[in-house]
Each structure stands twice: as C-alpha cells, then as structure tokens.
Amino acid sequence: ADDGATVLTATDVHVAGYPTVEAVKWIGETLERETSGRVRLRQYHSGQLGREAEAIDMARFGAIDMTRVYAGALNNAFPLTTALCLPYAFDSVAHLRHALDGGIAQTVLDGFGSRDLVGLAVYDSGARCFYNTRHAIRTPADLHGLKLRVASSDMFIDLMRLLGANPTPMSLGDTFSGMETHMIDGAENNMRSFHSSRHFEAARFWSQSEHSYAPDILLISRRSLDALAPADRDLLIDTARASVPVMRRLWDASEEAARQAVRDYGIAFNEVDMDAFRTAAAPLRERYLRQPELQTLYRRIRDFA
C-alpha cells in the first residue's frame, strides 16, 4: 500500500460467508482497528489464488502471507496434523474443543515451524460423515462397493478402503456432477460443506458416521510474521487466537442452518452403528500410532475424552 500500511494477504478456498472466511475477515477488521490502519488484511476467498496444496507452498515462500487449509491436505507434509484427522480420535464436538483448547491445538500449531510456517489457529469444523445417492449406511458392510469421492490424502484413501468402500480421489469441484452422473455414489464431508457445495441436491442419504473431525488450520508465512514489528506480531497472534471462539459461534449457527436447510430439502438422516465403525477403523489407527509422536499426541487427545 502507498500510505505505508502493511497489507497482509490471506487466502481461502471457501466462498465469502463461510465461517473460516468470516473469521479471518474479523481478524483483519480487528487488526485494522487496533493499529489505526497500520496493519490491514486483504482476503482472497473462493480459491482465487489457487488450490490448498499450492497455497501452503505460496505461504512458505512468502508469495502470500496467510492461508486457511483443511488439515487433511497437510497430513503428508506435517505428520502431526494426522492426529487431528484419525478416525474416531474425537468422540464429540465438545471433546474436540476441550482437547484443542487444552493444548492440543498449540502442539499441532508449533509443528509447522519446520517448514517456514507458523500455525495461528485451529478452526474446528464439525464431524465428517458419509452421504450418498444409493442407500442409508448403518454398518461398514453398507459401504461395500460404494464409490466414494475422497480428498487427496493417504489417510482418507486408506480409511475408505479399510471400511470397504471404493475410494475415488477427485477434486471437490467434480464431485457434484460425478454423483449426478453416477460415476461415484457419494462422498464424505461436514454438514456445512454438504450444504454449501449443493451436494445435497444429488445425494439423498446422510449417515451420521462422524468418522473424522479433521479441522481447518490458519497458517502464516514465517517470513511475513518476522517482518512485522514485535508489537504487531503479538497483536496478530493474539487476535488469531481470539478468532477461534468467533469462528465457533459462526460455525454453530450456520451448521444448524445448513442442517435445517437440507432437512427441508428432504434429505434422509440416519444414525450408524458407531461401535462397528470404530472397530472397523481401529487397524488404521493402530498403524498410524506406530509413529511415536502421533502416539503421544493421540494419548493426550484421549485424556480429554
């Protein structure tokens, strides 16, 4: 900017109005107010500057300053994030938030330093569940033979295979037409995305499997953070932390609205045999927990249950 103000850039692949976009916007407004306009934020939502995998590297090299990404996209480069995605690591949203606030979020966020990033906040975004065009899923056997879209993450690919589904990696953008044309039978995501992606218009069955609570993570480039004056740096870190409850309020309200909207549309909800799913997913969890640092973190997560 010409007036000497520092302008931080932030990217998100979600659209305007999505809780993570709004939370980061709130950070920007707060920074601008507290610094009398010295530090500002420019947001690029809706994936205007590219996909999540590229945004992470852009932040690492300092092309952008901040980015909000889904924890699943970080698994392979930042193994600690896997602990947050593991199937049935969390029992409920209450457990998840309790654990995150009790130090789990901080441990994961500290792990980004190894690759020129600083973790600013963990935004929890509800439970991921299965939805499909065929039938209600109550036990893992109901998944057998179903072609489900998964994001490009080894953990999720392995999980789907283990549960008996046929994982088809594809981009979120292709998923709707994939279901409409029966190339795939369904996908898995949280309620808010199920609604905002309009996938509910194609998939009639929502099964409350809650198999993962993979959250979203807000990152900043180490270079950008270091370039700020110490006082501004502290202010940014504190504001990002304070944005978590802001995001949660927005999330809870909009998730409820989304649930109501898809219910009104006529989506069939069903509960699943949670124990059967837990048992079926256990071998995968065991395999990942052979890594000592994941084992330690997982134990701490379970202590909050």
């Binding site: 590297d57 698994n75 392979n76 480069a77 490009s152 993450s153 080894d154 690919i157 990696p169």
Partner: peptide, 18 residues
C-alpha cells in the same frame, strides 16, 4: 529447488515424492 524441497514428502495416493 522446488523438487528438492518436497523430495522427502510422499505424494498422496502414489509411492513417489510430492
């Protein structure tokens, strides 16, 4: 440089570097 940077990270879905 980008090649070297991600050489030790596995690509999702296939046994090759990211």
């Amino acid at each position: 440089l980008l090649l070297l940077d991600g050489l030790h990270i596995k690509a999702a879905g296939a046994a090759m570097p990211q």
